[in-house]
Amino acid sequence: MNHLMWKTAGASVLGASHKRRNLPNQDAWLAEPGLDAGSSFLIAVADGHGSPRHHRSDTGSLLAVQAVKETLAWFFDDPESLPELAEDLHALWLQSVREDLQARPCEEGVVAYGSTLVAVAGSGKHLLALQLGDGDLLLGYPDGAIERPFAEDDLVGEETYSLCMDNAARFVKRRLYNREQASRWPDFAFVSTDGVSKSFVDGEAFASVVANYRDLSADGNSLKSTVEALPGWLREVTDNGSGDDATLCIATCR
């Protein structure tokens, strides 16, 4: 089994509608190891809800990507702990939120920090896809296929599952891939907040752009230029589309 080396990139921009309302960017992201290739990686995005009740969701989304990083730090040493992963992640996020609340109490409590979370992490042998609430997670394969590991949540309107729900762990979708048992293996991962996909005319147009990112990342040397160009690209997307904060991360081992 050859040794895969992953590089990651990410960026986030404030949406026009948040700018008009003087709201901060309520998305957060994390992409490791960055441009220095590593045998394991983590990309994660979180989308704070943004409504007045969720007025600390910029902090909530930041704590979400930090919680997933911490929860997954040792996960691949014991992938059999998958059934407990969601509970552990949620408990850690809640603990961080409560610490923040202790320092600066607010009436809404945990609800004020509501956020989604989408992440992909990989080690030499495993790859984990994880999602709570809306957002997009796609994996790319050497044959050019782009696939979504999870079906869309069946919710009404713009509702989403959230870390601020008491039973959030129940709604965390997760899928663990084992390289030794897989007939094919992803060489590309993409996660984004819904401000990105909702700017495209339809799902097909969005998927074609994701496929294009996979093609462009074939040349590992150009990833640095991609990182530099990402904020401008995201701004164009949200300015001409959803107007929402827009955040994406990619991981490539090509």
């Binding site: 909702k198 700017s199 495209f200 005319v201 147009a205 074609s208 752009v209 294009n212 990112y213 462009l216 040349d219 150009s222 230029s225 991609t226 530099e228 160009a229 990402l230 401008g232 690209w233 164009e236 997307v237 001409n240 589309g241 959803s242």
Partner: peptide
């Protein structure tokens, strides 16, 4: 100088305001 695109081209037809 490398003129290869580094992000996907954003054809106006790809983006849309939601209805």
């Amino acid at each position: 100088m490398n003129d290869r695109p580094v992000t996907p081209a954003l054809d106006a037809a790809l983006l849309s305001r939601r209805q």
